[in-house]
Simulated scan of single mutants.
Amino acid sequence: MYRSWMPSFLRPDFTWPRPMQSTICEVTPKLPHVPGKIKRRACGIFHEVLYRLSGWYCSWCDIPFDANIVQLPFGLVLKWTDRTSIEEAVAMHMARAAGMPVPKVLTCGEHPYAPFNRVFSILMTRLPGIALENSDDLLHVELEDPWLSELKKCVTSMRTWSSPHAQRICSVLGTSLRSTRVPNHIMGPFTDEEELHDYLLSPASGHGFNTTADYNQALAQATKIRKYSHEITFTHGDFKAHNILVGDDGHLSAFLDWESAGWYPEYWDFTTASRYGKNSWWAQVALWVGGERYDDELACDIALNSLTVDSYIAF
């Protein structure tokens, strides 16, 4: 329980709402100015002070301390993980500039000597809402509006953006992509889709199969992905239920965790959402917002997962 006399702006449930905009930009937002290394290092020192402050703050408010998503007063959150990057901050800025309900990036910090590869942090605003959860329930579209239609508007709009990197598969800055779907959780950049598929298929192994025939069947299915040609579109990269917050009014209140965002083949978000549960509630959401076109790609992706999961699941 929070202390009764505590001002609302000091409480850990204080937020800075970013209402869903009526129109989401369908033209690629301009890249923001990226702060220089000296400024990022200075902000990193400031973030380290906030990190220590959060331990005291969480104890004072009687809430758990989270070393990755660091809770602060005044409606602020410090994200500091081994996956946080300048690319994530830029992607968040672009999505927010387009009109999506995304936290506002305040400062970016660099930590060159931090352990466990926690070399970057982002100070941002906290948004309201409750995170969605996946389940085995059926999706009833009429019961999920308005947030479901608003999510579809976000996904559809950002898929119309034109990449400044031509057919390259890369982050918003043209650099490597971060994804939990690959070894070491980092890949690329790739010059084209063929190079991406070469990389994804390279760790294929028969380790998890009972027979050689089963392995060959899965490999044949996975390699069918090479037959299809796709547009390269702006992609969230980690399109999961827990990254979507819905407010008490039923509206989409936050679209979170842009650490994997970048330019991918158009199917990537939808197969990411469905590969571990094709008939789950969240997979039905992915189908409704645009994934119904990618059944063939999903079959390839599921086969690919069975061939390569040993290469990244331990990381």
Rank of each mutant, 00 (worst) to 15 (best):
L76W: 10
L53K: 00
W56I: 14
W56H: 08
I86S: 09
I122V: 14
R11I: 02
I244C: 09
L139T: 07
C300P: 08
L72C: 09
M6G: 03
T81D: 04
R52S: 12
C154G: 06
T180D: 15
P189W: 04
T125Y: 06
P115K: 08
I169C: 02
L245T: 05
P7R: 02
H242E: 15
R18A: 15
Q221A: 12
I24S: 03
Y267S: 09
E142T: 10
G129I: 05
A204M: 07
N117W: 02
S176A: 14
C108Q: 12
T15H: 09
A273G: 08
L298S: 06
E142S: 13
V34I: 14
D248E: 15
G44L: 06
L139G: 05
Q71H: 12
L298M: 06
F255R: 04
V34F: 05
L143D: 15
D238P: 02
R226C: 07
V102M: 06
V90W: 04
T211P: 11
T180W: 12
L196H: 01
D13T: 10
A131V: 10
C170D: 03
G55F: 12
N216Y: 13
T125A: 08
Y267I: 04
M92G: 06
W147L: 06
K224E: 15
W5D: 15
E259N: 00
H242V: 02
D198N: 14
S163Q: 01
H165R: 07
V289Y: 09
A286Q: 10
L127E: 07
G44I: 02
V119P: 00
E144M: 14
P103Y: 00
N279T: 13
T191H: 10
